[in-house]
């Protein structure tokens, strides 16, 4: 079976992210390390392990600027067979619903049995992708999946939801978004990192997909830093005394209890 994995490049989780004063919709990228979206690693790992047992090709698709190629290379080094990159500004600088529509068009000719993506993009903090792609392809989706088993014509997935979970059975093809409980992503070996550079990364434009530019449905007007938290009271000393101070503060000042 053919499996498609959606890839995105994002700033590292430990990065300090600041708005760019000259371009307030964007962030300062100096000193920021960019990585493959952490949840996409779970999607890649899951795709590879399914392909290893059922046979078939794993194709990565990434919307992003040319620099996002390093995230694609990470996926190729993990074992993804080939990749497509859509670098049109009309695709890169648009909203998640439009991106999902573009990705759906890119996925269609591959006719995959399964499309996997990360549960969330940690930069824009959006988790809509699986549902949006599924809707445009008129396929079922299961979001936020922590356990997955795939057979020839159906899948069973456990979806985490507000504390509990749902066991969902779906026909294939389907779109699944992957969470951390799913697996432990493999580390690419040096030899695989080298080999990744020889794998195909095909550049795809919106016109290749027969799509015209569409104005974004939503767009960031301005980014700002949230108000910084001020240091509060610091107490040290005997545990009995400090704990009593804390309880007194909770009832008298914070007025929570």
């Amino acid at each position: 079976m053919t499996i498609v994995v959606i890839l995105k490049q994002v700033p590292d989780t430990e990065a300090v992210v600041r708005p760019d004063p000259s371009r307030p919709q964007g962030i300062l990228t100096e000193d920021v390390k960019f990585i493959l979206n952490p949840y996409d690693e779970f999607a890649v790992e899951e795709a590879l392990s399914i392909a290893e047992s059922t046979g078939g090709e794993v194709v990565g698709i990434c919307i992003g600027p040319a620099e996002a190629e390093s995230a694609v290379l990470t996926a190729l080094a993990m074992g993804v067979d080939r990749a497509m990159m859509i670098t049109d500004p009309g695709a890169v600088e648009t909203d998640i619903v439009t991106k999902g529509r573009i990705l759906a068009e890119a996925i269609k000719p591959l006719n995959p049995s399964l499309v996997l993506c990360g549960r969330e993009w940690i930069d824009t903090q959006e988790d809509a992708l699986a549902a949006v792609i599924a809707e445009y392809l008129d396929l079922p989706h299961v979001g936020n999946v922590g356990k997955l088993s795939v057979e020839s014509s159906k899948l069973t997935a456990v979806r985490e939801m507000d504390g509990g979970s749902l066991e969902i059975e779906s026909t294939l093809p389907a779109i699944v978004s992957c969470s951390k409980d799913l697996n432990e992503p493999r580390y690419p070996t040096l030899i695989k990192i080298k080999r990744a550079k020889t794998k195909e990364i095909k550049s795809v434009t919106l016109s290749d997909l027969n799509l015209a530019f569409e104005p974004p449905r939503s767009r960031v007007k301005i980014l700002s830093s949230p108000p910084a938290r001020q240091a509060g009271r610091v107490v040290k000393g005997e545990p009995d005394a400090t704990a009593r101070d804390a309880v007194a503060w909770l009832s008298d000042e914070a007025k929570i209890i």
Binding site: V17, V97, I122, S218, K221, S225, P226
Partner: peptide, 20 residues
Amino acid sequence: VSVVRPVYSGKLLAEVELPG
């Protein structure tokens, strides 16, 4: 209508216009 939503897990806030 425009809205504010956290991005980068709340490291920043984005004011978002919704022309769609």
